[in-house]
Amino acid sequence: MAAPLGIRRQLPHSPWLFAAPGLLVTGAFVLYPFVSTLVNSFTDRRTLVPGRFVGLANYRELLHDDMFWTGLRNSALYILGVVPALVLLPLLLALLVQKNIPGITFFRSAFYTPVVASIVVVGLIWVWLLDERGLVNSLLETIGIGRIGFLSDQWLLLLSAMAVTVWKGLGYYMIIYLAALANVPRELYEAAAVDGAGPVRRFLSVTVPAVRSTMVLVAALSSVAAFKVFSEVYLMAGPSGGPAGEDTTLVMLVQRTGTGLTGRVGYASALSVVVFAVTVALMLLVLRADRREEP
């Protein structure tokens, strides 16, 4: 083939026609909003009022806004609570469903079901399960522990929301781990078994090193998702974020501040920039940790 494919015999602009719908949508509804978020964060724009340039005023206000620090704290706590569980539990689950024993495809699919369900459905299911009079408390009372106000205490609420996030994410990361485990050479396990290594030892010295890069990937994906948590907490703690708003997350604060007819677009944009900056920082952090551990 002398000439590269597609130089001749095509309308001169046809490649751009192919790419146009995608470029248009991406430009208008992702890149333009991104730039306008940056720009708006330096203005006092409101939903119905065009803004004036105010310099760093929004960012200065952030520093003195208790709600911002509450949101940042909760979103950060969410990472600490959710990521270790989502790195470890799905790996154990993947080991459990890895062997092709009869009926295993049914179990794999069943464990994935929470991933398919909408977060709203999942949130409402757990609101009812953890209700003062719900199933979990009925069971706790039956076995003599008594009822617990999962959804009325600030910290229990946040913990419950984390548990729901983990519950919904298990199946997703299980599938990612299954793909990684399929590439672990069988011989490694056999050699370890011959050396007399028990299941725990085999897990630590064969499985973990073999899927380490997948664990880093899962940590990156789940920490970014955890920091941006919105729906679980919004549904379980309510739009105002639980008792005295103490369970508000950063994205909830963005949504609350910036929407509606009185929305403070400028201030919400500054909050959004923080969300974006932390997300990028998390990615870089995890990827750097990966490189440092490389042998």
Partner: peptide, 17 residues
């Protein structure tokens, strides 16, 4: 680049758009 932009960070601007 668009893939790297978190939706949660631009919803307000998407709304004004």
């Amino acid at each position: 680049l668009a893939m790297l932009v978190p939706v949660e960070g631009i919803v307000i601007a998407q709304f004004t758009t």
